[in-house]
Write a protein that binds this DNA or RNA. Structure first.
Length: 272
DNA sequence: GTCCAGGCATGCA
DNA sequence: TGCATGCATGGA
């Protein structure tokens, strides 16, 4: 990958296996919106970004090299060799088909707090509605980091709310989960950076102790927010996919189950 | 009106 | 340990 500066923009050349629509709108992150010019705008780690693919290059508008190194390089998982990983995953015929059809899905390395709250909201819910709840949450309680763009609210900010405030943005019965999680993180009873530094098994146990977090939400948070790419979340869609794997997951997934999972998830939502 | 969505807590056996 | 049930909300 080559990084060039053009006035205030940053240009990434030679990035392999990155489709903006497939990655930013495939149900792992809920805050990216496609713009009329085909670019994508969103906020992560309290930074606003507009990114567009042009002739195979990626243009990051008004982005400094410092912000790229501090946030976006890791957020887009740019140091991982997806081309090589996909070649290995394609030893499985179904994944080979999905990768051919949907090449360019990456696993985003999101903020642990945002990912955890987002996937608590995701339970027994559909993606369109999840996006709406999170959008209202950010607009009401986040900071405006660019015009009309809001950061994800901190645990301290949400901890100061009442459960009824969270019900008012449409969170439904999950409002009480968000409230207690915010209280626990704000008070320091739960330390997410500590969990991030743990081995997978311990991190998973710690997340499963949280009120409102079960195995599915824990696996999603671990995969998308805690950088455990070997996690394989199973939701109602993946249960249907697993009928194609009666003998368990194939050997070629090993170590990168989460990437295989995201391709299969996308395939399932479009084909089952 | 019913069914479903990136499920989980709770109660009960 | 495993299974049944209730849960908020909005779109199909």
């Amino acid at each position: 990958m080559i990084i060039e500066q053009r006035e205030n923009d940053l240009i990434l050349k030679g990035v392999k296996c990155l489709s903006l629509p497939l990655t930013l709108d495939c149900g792992e992150a809920f805050r990216w919106e496609e713009q009329e010019d085909g670019s994508w705008s969103g906020v992560a780690f309290s930074k606003f970004l507009n990114i567009k693919e042009e002739n195979g290059d990626f243009v990051l508008k008004n982005t400094s090299p410092e912000d790229f190194e501090a946030v976006w390089r890791n957020y887009f998982d740019l140091d991982r060799d997806y081309a090589a990983i996909c070649e290995r995953l394609k030893r499985d015929p179904l994944v080979a088909q999905t990768i051919d059809e949907y090449y360019g899905i990456r696993i985003l390395n999101q903020d642990p707090w945002e990912a955890l709250v987002s996937f608590v909201i995701s339970q027994q819910n559909n993606i369109k509605r999840i996006k709406g709840i999170i959008k209202r949450l950010c607009e009401a309680y986040g900071d405006e980091v660019a015009e009309g763009a809001y950061s994800f609210p901190t645990a301290e900010r949400l901890s100061a709310l009442e459960v009824s405030d969270l019900e008012a943005i449409g969170a439904g019965y999950r409002a009480k989960y968000i409230k207690r999680l915010a209280d626990d993180v704000a008070s320091g009873r739960i330390d997410l950076s500590e969990i991030k530094a743990m081995e997978l098994d311990d991190a998973k146990k710690a997340l499963l102790d949280i009120y409102g977090v079960g195995i599915k939400v824990a696996n999603c948070a671990l995969l998308f927010g805690f950088q455990f790419v070997e996690c394989f979340p199973v939701d109602v869609w993946m249960k249907r996919v697993l009928e194609y794997y009666p003998d368990g997951l194939p050997e070629c997934f090993k170590g990168y189950e989460g990437i295989a999972q995201q391709y299969l998830f996308h395939w399932a939502r479009n084909n089952l």
